[in-house]
């Protein structure tokens, strides 16, 4: 209990990391809702990996073009954000264009993307002799290193993503649920897709930078899957996914602090336990309902 009181105190030493965790935990599921609804869940694995490859590429490119860089300074973080965002958005656009041509299966495209991104990450890291432990931490997402300045950027950008998702929710819903109807209504389907992909790209890039690919993927997918079992309407689906994400990130942070566990895996583990509990309760509920109607 004292650990809980401690992390809730305003002068808690890891307050920025806690707020950053909860922010990523709440906003990733909001874009993850569209991953689940558009049946692109595995994209949630491939895109954070692409984002990581983008970070590694940015450092290699910087070294080749400008020269050796100092690890740990602010410009390094900006460089990493640019690399992560460029690779993520580029990846989404290429995958979307291939989807329209529809020559291979979705799984094949995503599988190849993941394999290529993972290989590139390692190759780019190997190509940078200055790639030390700090850079590896950056790729893993060192959330404990969150500062007030980086938290401010994170809050502002993720806040903008939330505003975009809320303001254009009817357009995003229409192009996701019934693309043909959106065309018949003469909506600019490609523009709305691009805006949604932009929001997804920004969220994943910042998520990977802040919390790493594992946590980002976990929060893109697990809270929306949990919320899907509990809700029957779109708006409650999104809100429940964000709430579950934020809450499980907080509980995960508490568990990591209290039991001295690695933060990211602790957060994903808590979110997964919640999913397992909700799935079990839902299955029991359905089993009881069908047993009652049979008798």
């Amino acid at each position: 209990m004292s650990a809980l009181v401690e992390i809730l105190r305003p002068d808690f030493i890891l307050r920025d990391a806690l707020v950053g965790s909860v922010l990523v935990g709440a906003v990733c599921p909001l874009v993850g809702v569209y991953f689940v609804l558009r049946r692109m869940i595995f994209l949630g694995v491939a895109l954070p990996q692409l984002s990581a490859a983008g970070i590694a590429f940015a450092f290699v490119a910087y070294r080749l073009v400008v020269g050796p860089h100092e690890h740990g300074n602010v410009s390094e973080r900006s460089l990493a954000i640019v690399g992560a965002f460029a690779f993520t958005l580029g990846g989404i656009l290429v995958l979307a264009a291939m989807e329209r041509q529809g020559r291979e299966t979705v799984e094949a495209r995503i599988g190849v993307t993941y394999a290529v991104a993972a290989a590139l990450t390692i190759l780019f890291l190997a190509a940078d002799p200055h790639g030390d432990a700090q850079m590896v931490n950056l790729l893993k997402g060192d959330i404990l290193a969150t500062t007030s300045a980086s938290l401010g950027v994170l809050a502002a950008v993720l806040g903008a993503v939330v505003v975009v998702l809320f303001a254009f929710r009817k357009e995003f819903l229409l192009v996701s649920f019934d693309r043909d109807l959106a065309v018949v209504f003469r909506k600019r389907v490609a523009v709305w897709d691009l805006l949604l992909y932009l929001a997804i790209g920004v969220t994943i890039s910042l998520g990977v930078m802040t919390a790493g690919p594992l946590v980002t993927f976990g929060f893109l997918v697990v809270p929306p899957l949990t919320a899907r079992l509990l809700t029957r309407r779109m708006i409650s689906f999104s809100l429940a996914a964000a709430s579950i994400g934020g809450l499980t990130a907080f509980v995960g942070f508490y568990c990591a602090y209290r039991f001295d566990l690695p933060l990211g895996p602790a957060e994903v583990a808590v979110a997964s336990v919640v999913l397992a509990v909700v799935t079990t309760v839902t299955m029991i509920g359905r089993w009881r309902t069908s047993a009652r109607s049979a008798s």
Binding site: L173, D178, T231, M234
Partner: peptide
């Protein structure tokens, strides 16, 4: 715009929508 009624199998059941929410989409 023309009113369009697609084959219902083309719509994905994963979307948590009430009947009213589906109809509301027509007003978009």
């Amino acid at each position: 715009p023309p009113g369009y009624v697609p084959q219902r199998e083309t719509l994905d059941p994963i979307f948590p929508l009430s009947a009213f929410e589906v109809v509301l989409m027509g007003t978009y």
